[in-house]
Design a protein around this nucleic acid. Structure first.
Length: 130
DNA sequence: CTTCTCACA
DNA sequence: TGTGAGTA
């Protein structure tokens, strides 16, 4: 399929698909006219990439993770690269920190929303007697 | 419609 | 990490 169709099916703009390619995350074949030609399996792959990116994982880490993502379920690592392991540990810890931060701000929003609701309830009470 | 690159937030 | 503009 061409880039437009992949964009539609993955909800990822064509601009981003080219960007992922530039970052070495996907490598589509080329048609004779130079247009990118995407295989079916790339639909799933792009969705996974989006998910990881949305989780705040940098593209270079995603690139290192892609081989693992292809193999289904029980991950078997033939050659456990210590450096890669260390990088993944750092990434996981970063993620844990972000989760804590998100929870903090989530609670803050909840309190603010509650304050707004109280304010609304108060103005409603004032209007009722009128 | 597709391709590319350069600049920029 | 992504976008916008201009090109062909």
């Amino acid at each position: 399929m061409k880039i437009g169709e992949l964009a539609k099916r993955t909800e990822v703009p064509t601009r981003m698909l080219r960007y992922y390619e530039e970052q070495g995350l996907i490598t589509p074949r080329r048609q004779q006219n130079g247009y990118r030609e995407y295989d079916e399996y790339l639909v799933d792959r792009v969705k996974k990439i989006r998910g990881l990116l949305d989780s705040g994982i940098p593209t270079r880490i995603i690139g290192d993770m892609l081989p693992c993502l292809n193999q289904p379920q029980e991950i078997v690592v033939a050659d456990p690269d210590p450096e890669l392991r260390e990088m993944l540990v750092r990434e996981r810890d970063r993620m844990t920190e972000r989760i804590a931060l998100l929870e903090h701000h989530c609670h803050a929003l909840t309190k603010y929303i509650a304050a707004m609701d109280r304010s609304l309830a108060a103005t409603t009470e004032i209007r009722l007697p009128q």
